[in-house]
Write a protein that binds this DNA or RNA. Structure first.
Lengths: 145, 145
DNA sequence: ATAATTTCGGATAAATTTGTCCGAATTAAA
DNA sequence: TTTAATTCGGACAAATTTATCCGAAATTAT
């Protein structure tokens, strides 16, 4: 809906990896997909993308898997995951899909839609992977199906 | 993005029809598609859906076309157009796509996402086709590409 | 070294959304 | 009553997103 399925999986996977990393445990592709309930091969693609964008770290071979250093978690905001997968358009695009929608030439819903869109933007831009991973750690929130 | 392309076209088409209807002019499929910049045949499908849902009225034959009575415009909210095309899921669904996300078992972004989603819901639920059509009428807002 | 375990990357397939085509049905005007 | 203009509805096609498959590359342990 708001985000693509790929992006939803990407955020969930990142939070799972972060949670595991807080406990000094590696996360393998299999574990991740099993835990967040996503198709394994599709999840692999998304993780590759996140790795390329340097949002998570991967190591190959036995004992390999995915990992995020606590420092990195603190500096990574949700918006960066969205940017890596869906792009940032959602935070600037017209609610009715018009290209020429702006302050000076607003579409009919512009004034009412903008604060909503900005609210989402602000939220994603200010929320770190770390704070959400600690929510999981404290069992205040849940990822599993 | 937020809404499907079909839904964007649906809202734009409805507002165009409403605007025309305020001036006692009919809107034909051709006019609508040309004006809002949408593919003709695809737009036809969407208009059929809106007609079935009784959000707009259609008449066949020469001098036919689409129309909305001012009274109906006043009673029609944007959310009804979304409901007819995309459904209402977007206003209740988890931001991370989890089925079991709720107050008692929230996903990691639940608390932060909910107000944004509710803001969108409230906005779409309180905004009438009539008020947006009058914005077009007064040239305060624009639909054209 | 060899084998086992993992991610990487390319090709492909399935599902969904977006878009097209065309004849049928309806209606108004000539 | 014929013709033209319109929406309706079904089948189909293209594009995009979601998902699968499989061999290659890297790394660890035996």
């Amino acid at each position: 809906m708001i985000f693509s399925k790929a992006c939803e999986y990407g955020i969930r996977a990142t939070l799972y990896i972060a949670h595991q990393s807080l406990n000094r445990e590696r996360a393998t592709l299999k574990d991740i997909a099993a835990d967040i309930g996503s198709p394994v091969a599709f999840t692999a693609k998304i993780l590759q993308q996140l790795t390329k964008n340097n949002l998570i770290d991967s190591t190959k071979g036995p004992m390999g898997g995915f990992h995020i250093a606590p420092e990195k978690m603190k500096n990574t905001k949700l918006i960066q995951i969205v940017e890596a997968i869906d792009g940032l358009d959602i935070f600037t695009q017209c609610g009715l899909g018009l290209k020429e929608c702006s302050e000076t030439r607003p579409c009919p819903v512009h004034d009412k839609f903008k604060p909503v869109r900005n609210g989402l933007h602000e939220m994603m831009d200010s929320t770190s992977v770390f704070e959400l991973a600690t929510g999981l750690e404290q069992k205040l929130t849940y990822l599993k199906h």
